[in-house]
């Protein structure tokens, strides 16, 4: 089994975050084969939808479905996408997901910009590289990138892009912008 380590596939994680209905699932599906991944947590003191599970050590758990996608760059190099709800009460899932993550895409809808505040806060605090992708829903008031940047109080180096997550080319551009940003973050840290 000596050769096992060198053969191990390289796995990269990217998080897709943002408020309800902002386009997370659509984005993951646009660039990868998407599958629902069931995850569950013990909810003893988290105060959300408690299911009573008699006989299971008195533990309260609930099931949360995440969007899960994979992009095979080449054999042995895979990018995994995880789309997760953006509310603060799900941060317990993010702690695991962001561990060692390449970065995150925060999807914003300019009609409900505040919905992505918790995501932005979270990644800023964690020091996870992230980009903000403004999903341009039809008929949504188009704000300039600068307006979004100011409203979200973003650092100058955080990329903000306009996108249409339904279009593969646009979704791809978002992913590339994120990896380029991670690369820059890495270079400036060295």
């Amino acid at each position: 089994m000596d050769s096992v380590l060198s053969e191990d596939p390289v796995a990269l994680k990217i998080l897709i975050a943002g408020g309800f209905g902002v386009g997370k699932t659509t984005l993951v599906g646009a660039v990868s084969e998407i599958k629902p991944l069931r995850t569950e947590e013990v909810l003893s003191d988290r105060g959300i939808g408690i299911d009573d599970l008699d006989g299971v050590e008195g533990k309260n758990t609930t099931t949360v479905a995440m969007d899960f996608g994979r992009i095979t760059i080449r054999e042995g190099l895979v990018v995994y996408l995880f789309g997760t709800p953006g509310q603060e009460r799900f941060w317990f899932m993010w702690d695991e997901l962001s561990y060692g993550a390449l970065g995150a895409v925060v999807i914003a809808d300019t009609r409900r910009l505040t919905d992505c505040f918790p995501s932005v806060d979270y990644f800023e605090q964690r020091g996870t590289p992230f980009v903000v992708a403004v999903n341009c829903f039809d008929g949504a008031a188009r704000h300039s990138i600068d307006d979004v940047r100011i409203a979200l109080d973003l650092d100058d180096d955080v990329p903000v892009l306009l996108c249409d997550v339904r279009r593969r080319a646009s979704a791809k551009e978002v992913m590339i912008a994120l990896v380029e940003h991670s690369l820059r973050t890495l270079a400036s840290a060295n």
């Binding site: 796995a11 990269l12 660039v31 760059i73 060692g100 390449l102 791809k172 690369l183 890495l186 270079a187």
Partner: peptide, 28 residues
């Protein structure tokens, strides 16, 4: 089974791999 964890900082610290990912995404 054997289970190999990804390194703590992940491959995000590997410039060569990130460049490979960028090129791979472009080619999608």
């Amino acid at each position: 089974i054997s289970v190999t964890s990804p390194p703590a900082v992940g491959a995000r610290s590997n410039e060569r791999i990130l460049k490979e990912v960028i090129n791979g995404l472009r080619a999608l």
